[in-house]
Design a protein around this nucleic acid. Structure first.
Length: 278
DNA sequence: TCCCAGGCTCTCT
DNA sequence: AGAGAGCATGGG
């Protein structure tokens, strides 16, 4: 499927056909990756700074990573061991899914840090991606720790120690109180994020919805993007529109086993083609 | 200027 | 259970 070579402190991923950096890192599932003028992506995840790049021969280079970090962190973060070709083939029995998945081919669903993901998607509600990124950047710059050319995402404990006034700097509006409630419940153990991947998706969703400002959409994003629940299917305004226009409101049966992955293809397809109801 | 954004809470039927 | 207003703020 792919193989990895370690050379000069870099990890070279070869033969990884399905891995488009832009479509993966800038498709709205993560908000903190940036690309420099040399087409090199950089960011922080799980308190580690990383730079990465796709070479012209298709090799993906992760710069300055140990074999240990690659195997214990980045391999899972980038979902490298999932066979996306198999999924695309399986859903292509439906013509529209074939089109959407070919269009978004190269997207990988990341396995992100649970608290960061939950907090980020709380911020995302009734908001646009540009402003979501701005709020999260301000949050990290003010309350996280510098790492490389970036910042760590502040822990739930750290945020729980702040007041609503402290969060004014974020300009997050009504979401401020939701961020604090989430931080409090996560840091005092009322919600155990590490347990969610072992629960069924409905129980896990209910657990997250104990937090103020967390409804089904935000919960499903957290479950899909940081708890390996590919059976979660977040329904935002784009997906609702696309489902109506493309599928008459019902997800094709081919997609059900891979609902979360397919959701990303549909979301990407809908946004990139500026899908509207006509 | 106005409408909208990876929604949710609260209230009223 | 379901519908609808209100919400903070800034992007387009």
């Amino acid at each position: 499927m792919y193989n990895v070579e370690f050379e000069n402190n870099n990890a070279l991923i070869k033969g990884m056909e399905i891995f488009d950096l832009k479509n993966t890192l800038d498709c709205g599932q993560a908000f903190r990756w940036e690309c420099d003028e040399n087409n090199r992506w950089y960011g922080v995840a799980y308190n580690k700074y990383l730079e990465l790049e796709k070479l012209s021969d298709g090799t993906i280079v992760l710069y300055n990573v140990t074999e240990e970090d690659f195997n214990s962190l980045w391999r899972d973060y980038f979902d490298l061991d999932r066979d996306y070709n198999q999924i695309i083939t399986a859903v292509s029995g439906n013509e529209i899914l074939k089109t959407a998945s070919e269009f978004g081919k190269g997207i990988r669903v990341l396995n992100q840090e649970p608290w960061e993901t939950l907090c980020s998607f709380i911020i995302s509600q009734n908001n646009n991606i540009k402003r979501i990124k701005g709020i999260i950047r301000t949050l990290c710059e003010n309350f996280g720790e510098p790492i490389g050319k970036g910042y760590s995402f502040p822990s739930a404990q750290k945020i729980a120690s702040l007041t609503l006034d402290d969060l004014d700097i974020l300009r997050a509006g009504f979401r401020g109180k939701y961020i604090l409630d989430a931080a409090t419940k996560v840091s005092n153990g009322e919600i155990d994020l590490n347990r969610l991947s072992s629960l069924n998706v409905d129980d896990a969703r209910q657990e997250l919805m104990k937090i103020k400002g967390v409804g089904p959409k935000v919960a499903d994003c957290a479950l899909l993007f940081s708890h390996k629940h590919i059976d979660a299917f977040p329904k935002d305004v784009w997906i609702k529109r696309a489902m109506q226009v493309l599928f008459n409101g019902e997800l094709p049966k081919e997609a059900v086993p891979y609902a979360g992955i397919v959701q990303q293809y549909i979301f990407f397809y809908a946004r990139e083609t500026k899908l509207t109801i006509e």
